[in-house]
Design a protein around this nucleic acid. Sequence first.
DNA 1: TCTAATCTCTATAGTAAGTATAGAGTCAAG
DNA 2: CTTGACTCTATACTTACTATAGAGATTAGA
Lengths: 133, 133
Amino acid sequence: MKIGELAKRSGCSVQAIRHYEKEGLISPPNRTEGNFRVYNSDALEKLIFIKNCRGLDLALDEIKQLISLQFSPSIPCEAVNEMVDMHLYAIKSRIADLQKLHDTLKQLRLKCGSARSVEQCGILAELSSITDS
Amino acid sequence: MKIGELAKRSGCSVQAIRHYEKEGLISPPNRTEGNFRVYNSDALEKLIFIKNCRGLDLALDEIKQLISLQFSPSIPCEAVNEMVDMHLYAIKSRIADLQKLHDTLKQLRLKCGSARSVEQCGILAELSSITDS
DNA sequence: TCTAATCTCTATAGTAAGTATAGAGTCAAG
DNA sequence: CTTGACTCTATACTTACTATAGAGATTAGA
């Protein structure tokens, strides 16, 4: 299949596929006489793997590591676990940060009713004076 | 004061200050004979305002809007409220997404113990087969 | 067979909000 | 007068793509 069909089947965009190739996540496929990329079902599988990983917010570099791990199947998979654990931690922190941000913003929102002028706006006043915590 | 002191006092980096100037968030200051930027306390105040906004994850473009609103103090501040409300909504969505991601990743983590080989790794197996939801 | 539409190619620029760097100039103190 | 700290501009880099230009390839219909 050509890149358009691969894109449709994998759910990645055509440009993203070319991007993954450039970044070394997928290997350069064979070409037709007219220089079009030709893919087989292995490429589709790999793309789906990549897509799943991206869905978990794994970075391309990390996905690259996972792929290279798949090529040395007998070594222990500690590295995989560590990567996932680190992500779990990062996500938890990010959630906590956002929650705090949400609370702050909600507080701020209460400073201003709806029909005031900018001059009297409690939000703008607050933004000028909050000190870092 | 020169840019280094302003940076220290405001908590922004020197490059960030120059960046804000280039983006039109702060006006170009006077220069010394030797072409160094010279700031007064108004600039410091403005930078603190910007820093507070950035702490709330407001984009530079949005901050720019807020600053221009401050220059027309008599118009209603609906726009400010709307911006804050939109952010509250965006943050809530982001938290929900991350929570879901966290749960998925935690499930995935359970697929693999600690001492297995990559070949048997449940995580990698799962990543190859999850279908999009 | 011609042609128009669609697909693909490469290369480049843009996104957000800065950080990092190079290479040059300025200033203050010893 | 020289050394070190500071500043200047301009450029490249970061992430994971998307968008675009301009060209060539392929396919379907007339």
